[in-house]
């Protein structure tokens, strides 16, 4: 589904990604871990097409297409979803209006008819249940005045609405209390099917208690320096990254 080969990227002239290789197939869950500043969020941003970053080398194919040639919204409409670490507040733009546009753009892209107001409301109700998102929040402005937990739930709610092929969740667990974490993580698990794939970027093993990864990658200084199964996450939790970094150096 996603194939990343030797990906290099800069921000403000500084190289952050220095040759990433990653293969993600349908039905898989990948976890990307690594110390602060290793390039985890950059990788997510580059895959989403954030224009702040400049790709200097490498290839990325997504469902057989050259991802790097696509605009941000084309990637999104093709089914690439990024769950933001810090979802931005958009004053005055209501959640429902925003989502309706997003869902219908995606449907248009797939050659489907737009949803009627009734169908859309039904879908909203159904999907907001996945993450126990209060319906009050969906009538408010996007992320405005949401608590940290609500913002993250809102990300997963949007993921549910858009039903992506590949979801990249950037530190979705940060800033969540234990209940919110459970809700968010089980929400992600519920959405997982053999046809889609998930990449979770995280600092902590605790998220992986809920979302069990098939692969765990360790990112360090812009490269994946180690790949293992879910036991690697437990080992990292217990022993930190030093042993890997020492090996690598």
């Amino acid at each position: 589904m996603l194939s990343v080969k030797n990906l290099h990227a800069n921000v403000g002239g500084k190289e952050i990604l220095r040759g990433i290789n990653l293969e993600v197939r349908a039905g898989e869950v990948h976890a990307i871990m690594g110390p602060n500043g290793s390039g985890k969020s950059t990788l997510a941003s580059v895959l989403a097409g954030n224009e702040k970053f400049e790709v200097t080398e490498g290839e990325v194919t997504f469902c057989g297409q050259n991802l790097l040639e696509m605009s941000i919204e084309e990637r999104a409409r093709e089914g690439l979803f990024l769950g933001f670490q810090y979802p931005v507040e958009i004053p005055g733009v209501t959640m429902s209006n925003f989502m309706k546009m997003a869902v219908n753009e995606q449907r248009k892209h797939r050659g489907q008819e737009p949803l009627t107001a009734g169908e859309f409301l039904k879908l909203m109700r159904e999907k907001s249940a996945v993450v126990e998102l209060s319906s009050k929040l969906t009538s408010r402005s996007v992320n405005e005045g949401f608590s940290g937990g609500e913002k993250k739930k809102n990300e997963i709610f949007q993921m549910a609405m858009l039903d992506p092929k590949l979801a990249i969740l950037d530190e979705t667990d940060s800033g969540l209390d234990i209940d919110a974490l459970r809700i968010v993580a089980t929400g992600v698990t519920k959405l997982h099917t053999p046809e889609n794939a998930t990449v979770v970027i995280t600092h902590y093993q605790r998220l992986l208690d809920y979302i069990v990864p098939d692969f765990v990658h360790v990112l360090y200084k812009g490269r994946i320096i180690h790949t293992g199964d879910k036991s690697l996450a437990l080992k990292l939790e217990a022993e930190g990254y030093d042993w890997l970094i020492n090996d690598y150096q």
């Binding site: 097409g49 999104a76 004053p91 005055g92 733009v93 925003f98 753009e105 995606q106």
Partner: peptide, 24 residues
């Protein structure tokens, strides 16, 4: 950027934001 990531075109995202600005 956020809105485009959800599949809106740049123009739609701009429009929506201005409408939001006015809606206040």
């Amino acid at each position: 950027y956020y809105m485009r990531q959800r599949g809106l075109s740049e123009q739609q995202a701009r429009r929506l934001q201005i409408e939001g600005f006015a809606y206040d």
